[in-house]
Simulated assay, not measured.
Amino acid sequence: MPEYRTVRAALSGHWAAHLRQEEAAASRRVLSDPLRTGLGDTSMLALEDYRGTTGELALLRRRPAVRAAVVGCGPYPETLVALQTSGLARRAVVGVDRHAETVALATAMADRFCAPEPHARIVCEDAAAVDYSGYDLVVVANGLVGKARLLDRIHRTAPIGVRVLMRSPILMGRLFYEHVQPDLRPGWTVTGRYLGTPLSETLLLERGEHA
C-alpha cells in the first residue's frame, strides 16, 4: 500500500536519525570518562530492549570467523567490540559506516575498548560498494537500507560458506526497520535464529553456490 510505505519511510527515517544521535551522545559520554573500562549500562542495545549480544554471538560459537565485517556499525559499535573481544573473530574485525563523523567516534571507541589482537578498524564506505571476498562473516545492522541489495552484493563477492548475522524486524518493528526474507533470496539458507527484542530477531544465514 502506498500509504503504508509513506508512513513507514517517515517513521524509519526519524527513528534512524534519533538512534544515531543517541549513539553518538553515548559514545561521547563514555569517551569523556577516563576511568571507564567497559561499555556497561550505556548500551544502545538497551535502548531497543535488547537482551545483549551474548545470545546473538552464541549462534557463532561452533565456528568462529577468521575475518569479520560489521556493516552499519554506528557511532557506538557495541557489536563490533563484543565480536572482537569474544574471540569469535580470529584475525580482523572491520566496521563499515558511510558517515565520516560516525566513523571517527566508532574508531575512538574501538581504540579504547578492543583488545590488541585481533586487529579492529573502522572504514568509511558504502556497504553496497564493499568487496566482501576477504570476509567469512558479515554482521548486518537492523537500520541499514537496501538489505536485499546488500545480500545480493555479499553473495556475488564473498566466498562460498560465508555467514551473515543479520538483525531483522518483526511485528511492529517493521515500521522502523526494513524487512527482507533472506531465505527467499537466491543462494541463502537460514541456519539459526535468536529472538533479541520484541521488535527484532537475529538470523544466521549461510551462502551456498553462486546462482
Score class of each variant (00 low, 15 high):
residue 30 V to Y: 02
residue 69 A to N: 01
residue 48 E to L: 15
residue 58 A to D: 14
residue 68 A to N: 13
residue 47 L to A: 13
residue 30 V to Q: 09
residue 32 S to E: 14
residue 39 L to N: 00
residue 67 R to S: 09
residue 61 R to L: 03
residue 57 L to F: 11
residue 47 L to V: 13
residue 53 T to R: 02
residue 67 R to L: 12
residue 64 P to D: 08
residue 44 M to H: 14
residue 31 L to P: 00
residue 46 A to N: 13
residue 24 A to H: 06
residue 66 V to L: 14
residue 55 G to M: 10
residue 47 L to Y: 09
residue 51 R to N: 12
residue 43 S to Y: 05
residue 47 L to G: 00
residue 54 T to A: 15
residue 33 D to E: 06
residue 24 A to M: 07
residue 40 G to V: 04
residue 35 L to H: 11
residue 51 R to K: 14
residue 36 R to D: 00
residue 69 A to F: 13
residue 62 R to K: 11
residue 53 T to D: 13
residue 48 E to H: 08
residue 37 T to F: 07
residue 27 S to F: 09
residue 47 L to D: 04
residue 62 R to Q: 12
residue 54 T to L: 07
residue 36 R to L: 14
residue 44 M to E: 04
residue 43 S to T: 10
residue 30 V to F: 08
residue 36 R to G: 00
residue 47 L to T: 09
residue 48 E to S: 10
residue 52 G to Y: 03
residue 30 V to L: 15
residue 64 P to A: 14
residue 35 L to C: 00
residue 51 R to P: 08
residue 34 P to D: 03
residue 30 V to G: 06
residue 43 S to M: 07
residue 58 A to P: 05
residue 28 R to M: 12
residue 59 L to T: 01
residue 41 D to L: 11
residue 56 E to G: 06
residue 40 G to C: 04
residue 53 T to C: 07
residue 52 G to K: 01
residue 28 R to S: 07
residue 66 V to C: 08
residue 49 D to M: 14
residue 67 R to M: 09
residue 58 A to T: 11
residue 44 M to C: 06
residue 69 A to K: 02
residue 56 E to W: 06
residue 52 G to F: 01
residue 39 L to I: 06
residue 27 S to Q: 10
residue 57 L to D: 03
residue 58 A to R: 11
residue 37 T to N: 06
residue 62 R to E: 15
residue 36 R to K: 04
residue 55 G to A: 10
residue 69 A to M: 14
residue 64 P to Q: 13
residue 33 D to T: 02
residue 50 Y to N: 15
residue 66 V to E: 14
residue 60 L to N: 01
residue 41 D to T: 04
residue 51 R to E: 11
residue 34 P to L: 05
residue 56 E to K: 01
residue 52 G to D: 10
residue 69 A to S: 05
residue 46 A to M: 11
residue 61 R to V: 06
residue 63 R to A: 11
residue 60 L to S: 03
residue 33 D to M: 03
residue 55 G to P: 00
residue 25 A to Y: 04
residue 51 R to H: 10
residue 44 M to Y: 10
residue 26 A to M: 08
residue 25 A to H: 12
residue 54 T to N: 06
residue 37 T to E: 15
residue 57 L to W: 04
residue 47 L to R: 08
residue 66 V to G: 13
residue 45 L to P: 00
residue 37 T to Y: 00
residue 69 A to I: 13
residue 32 S to L: 05
residue 38 G to D: 15
residue 57 L to H: 05
residue 54 T to E: 15
residue 32 S to P: 06
residue 34 P to C: 05
residue 28 R to I: 05
residue 56 E to R: 03
residue 39 L to P: 00
residue 34 P to S: 03
residue 37 T to K: 08
residue 58 A to S: 15
residue 45 L to I: 02
residue 27 S to Y: 03
residue 66 V to Y: 07
residue 68 A to E: 09
residue 38 G to R: 05
residue 30 V to I: 15
residue 55 G to R: 03
residue 34 P to K: 08
residue 40 G to S: 04
residue 36 R to M: 11
residue 68 A to L: 10
residue 46 A to I: 02
residue 44 M to I: 15
residue 64 P to W: 05
residue 38 G to L: 07
residue 51 R to A: 10
residue 31 L to N: 06
residue 67 R to H: 12
residue 68 A to Q: 08
residue 26 A to E: 01
residue 27 S to P: 00
residue 32 S to K: 06
residue 63 R to V: 08
residue 66 V to R: 14
